[in-house]
Design a protein around this nucleic acid. Structure first.
Lengths: 343, 343
DNA sequence: GTGAAAGCGCTAACAC
DNA sequence: GTGTTAGCGCTTTCAC
């Protein structure tokens, strides 16, 4: 329906190769020729066909993004925004592959739909086993990770230090004088791939030991594997009940992720605990609900993680060698209204 | 680097067209031939090249998504999730065009980068002027809107009824016995394209009149156009100050969007107003912060909006005629803890 | 610096 | 039902 490169060439009185060069490598074309071509292109309303260019160059100008959770998630949507903000201007589209369950995951690795059809793969917060990593590694295209638990099988990566960040939280609570700590993981973790959870729990356990907390001063409530028919409120009131009936009641609670804070806070208050007067609460991530709840939390910047991952990907795509393939992003504790010095 | 269609044809002992058909139109190929081809493809680890197919068919298998706000926004990320969940399996990639400011917007319409390079355009919550709409309409490809303020220039659309939804809120508050109402728009509206705001405000004004509220019983606080150096807290304390000093203090507050609720609530409480005992508060959208804050609000389902928009797009792409090009999505009032009957 | 020509890997008539 | 053939619209040697 639209003008193609030949039409422009004819209009400008040059060959198609010159038109091609004008758009792909402008500096190989004489300025005056270039402007002639540009004028013709403008007149005919010409746009280069990305499909044709892709076919010819062997590139697809497409990058696969592997995610375990939906894109609508706080972390995913923000990293995506970061990725797109650098990939889109560079001419790349992002193709999302969401692998929610084991079936999707198996399907993906069985068919490997990205083979030959994307130029790079970026994985978000993914915890592949080594075998899967191997398959990706065999792709010969760049594979970069965002908040991946290890660097194995990756050409580059950007991640926060979950363990160290959680340790910071523990030290902070200690400095406030808290003698008994609780750690609560996301109770229903539907995505078995999420890796940060493991790291954060590890960080909590090790840091609390290192800070001199005895076993009896630490309560860890891991994810429940099968809760089936129970409502969210039932689950959280169960958690609060455990906290209330513990031999030593905690004066501070860490949660593995901000999303746990809201229902927990509600239940805590329903049970008559005042936050922060009776108990302090610290989140992790600093998502929108953290701001809304005025929650003290560990801040990370997923958009920046996305931007950096995208830049690394682009560099790799250009055949460059990264002098720092793996970057650790800083996190920072944001002090808000749910923590208080123990009186 | 990888096997192409010829290799598979050779391996299977058939022609390349048969291989092509096996993948594109399997039912035109004899089952036994098909399995021969499949076996060969499997053996050679063959995947069809989307770029080549795209070039040949004249389609790009790419859909443009026009947005004014970042993808990381609650509405955008959820509609995106919905879109992708139907477009991706259908073989389409989504290419995001974010037009935050007038410059981006002008740039977009000046170069119209989607021309010839996408098969359809979907716009999210966009308020183009008629001239721009015209340009899009000239594309001859499907243009579908999500929560667009009008159907003009669109081939299809999915939207909630902002006005009616806001009217529902007003009637609800009236039924609770509230005699004086305030309406607060997002104070700093950085995106001049957002159209729901206008509609919602209109809905509030008209419904409050229809419900018999006198002008003096209604306080409307529109977006501030230039706040420059003031902090968010300053802005909200200014709003609360206005509310407190009004001739008639409102007993119920509507906000144009949930995002306004959190800072407002915080400021209200800081000033000693109890919510909902002293004043009721109703949001709009039902985003994550609404749940976290236990906010009574008007619920909409952007993921479903995305899914429906995607299905319409696909149908249009297949040359089908939609029997209902424009769909109005239901919304529902979610009663939570920030509203109370006036005592 | 520019043009001619050879495909990139597929799809779609069209024959058989 | 399957094979033959002619491109889709570009990029890229290679001459000139």
């Amino acid at each position: 329906m639209k003008a193609s490169i030949q039409a422009v060439a004819a209009e400008a009185g040059v060959s198609i190769s010159t038109v091609s060069r004008t758009f792909a490598k402008p500096n190989l074309v004489l300025p005056e020729t270039r402007s002639k071509v540009m004028a013709a292109a403008e007149k005919l309303d010409y746009r280069i066909s990305r499909s044709a260019a892709a076919l010819k160059t062997g590139q697809s100008f497409r990058v696969a993004l592997l995610m375990s959770d939906p894109i609508s998630t706080w972390f995913n949507s923000n990293t995506y925004a970061g990725l797109d903000s650098v990939l889109h201007p560079a001419g790349y589209d992002i193709s999302i592959f969401e692998m929610a369950d084991a079936h999707d995951r198996h399907e993906f690795f069985a068919t490997l739909p990205v083979r030959r059809n994307v130029d790079a793969v970026i994985e978000a917060s993914f915890d592949f086993d080594e075998a899967k990593k191997q398959v990706l590694g065999d792709l010969t295209i760049p594979v970069v990770g965002m908040n991946a638990p290890s660097t194995h099988g990756l050409d580059a990566g950007v991640a926060i230090d979950d363990e160290a960040s959680m340790a910071t939280i523990v030290r902070f609570l200690k400095s406030l004088g808290h003698k008994t700590l609780a750690y609560i993981e996301q109770p229903i973790n539907t995505t078995p791939f999420v890796c940060s959870d493991r790291l954060r729990k590890k960080g909590f356990s090790e840091a609390s030991q290192a800070c001199g907390y005895a076993d009896e001063d630490i309560i860890v409530m891991p994810s429940l594997s099968h809760i089936d028919a129970r409502s969210e409120q039932d689950i959280y009131s169960g958690i609060v009940a455990q906290l209330l009936s513990a031999p030593k009641q905690p004066t501070a609670i860490c949660v593995s992720v901000d999303a746990v804070a809201a229902p927990l806070l509600k239940e805590l208050r329903r049970m008559g605990w005042r936050v922060p007067q009776d108990v302090s609460l610290v989140g992790f991530d600093d998502d929108d609900t953290a701001t809304a709840l005025d929650l003290t939390t560990m801040h990370q910047d997923p958009a920046e993680i996305g931007r950096i991952a995208a830049r690394k990907t682009l560099a790799l795509l250009n055949g460059e060698t990264l002098d720092e393939p793996f970057t650790v992003m800083p996190t920072s504790l944001v002090l808000r209204g749910t923590t208080e010095r123990v009186s």
